[in-house]
Design a protein around this nucleic acid. Sequence first.
DNA 1: GGCTTAAGGGGATTTACTTCA
DNA 2: TTTGAAGTAAATCCCCTTAAG
Length: 288
Amino acid sequence: MEGSSIYDNSHMTNVLLLKNETIPSTSQLLDSSLWLPNSSPSFHGSASMVNFEENKSERPLFTQIDTKLENFSEEFDGFNQPEKKRRLLPDQVRFLEKSFEVDNKLEPERKVQLAKELGLQPRQVAIWFQNRRARYKTRLLEKEYDSLKSSYDKLKEDCASLFKDNEKLKNEVHLLNEKLLMRKNGNPISKPFEPIISPLDAQSKKPISSSSNAAKSDVSDPDGSPNYTDGNDDSSHVFEPEASDFSQDEDDSLCFPKLEVECCDDLQPNSCNLGFPVQDQGTWFWQY
DNA sequence: GGCTTAAGGGGATTTACTTCA
DNA sequence: TTTGAAGTAAATCCCCTTAAG
């Protein structure tokens, strides 16, 4: 069979043993035959990319190439068929994956040794690592996108909720202000005050914050009497309206983006940033 | 037909080596 | 003879693309 002929050599022995053995651990990989003990440190190229017959005499850079590597490359001359693309065997992929876990960058010596172990050309190993890095990066980006999207959705939810709360509070302030003016003008309140409650408010009648609770309790009191405690009319300073208090009312349409910006400056742990600094979230999964 | 993946090719960068003033 | 800058070639990377399985 044509396909089996490629791997039908002694170099596959170690690789095929993986079928019946457990995948070597990281340390085993590092300590085992993945590394060339006698390889020359001055080796800078791969057999598949360099024509050694031409270059050896001209460039001293390539004068110390391992002769075993040359023999190994020559073994492919007889049956290497570049026109046919073949998938790597599962065992080969498994071995490469393990090696990738150790280090996703490929040193020349390691490339040659891996090629030897797997019965592949060094160039094939290099290409596999390149493609593998690309796949890794793609998956990483997908993960990061999902994370950012969920954060964005949560932020959007929170901002919408805050916007509603803001509208509700403004409504309450407005009603209280009206009530206060009536008191100042000497017009007694003839009937219990009926605050205008939006459908949204009707759905959620729970307190928003401590400060809003104070205002809410004042308005939503069933008997309509304000909780000014001692009945001192001079307590009106509590709700003394100032022009600055309603500055946001003038540009309600700008309220949303304004909220968005400001809420990032003082985020609470339970808010949309999940308690992490904003600048840190973008790099959660980026360890590439 | 769509998906995965081996492989090709181009551009950028790094590194080792050579040449020359 | 030594030295540093400039030039060159090879290797490798990433990115995009193609095509086989």
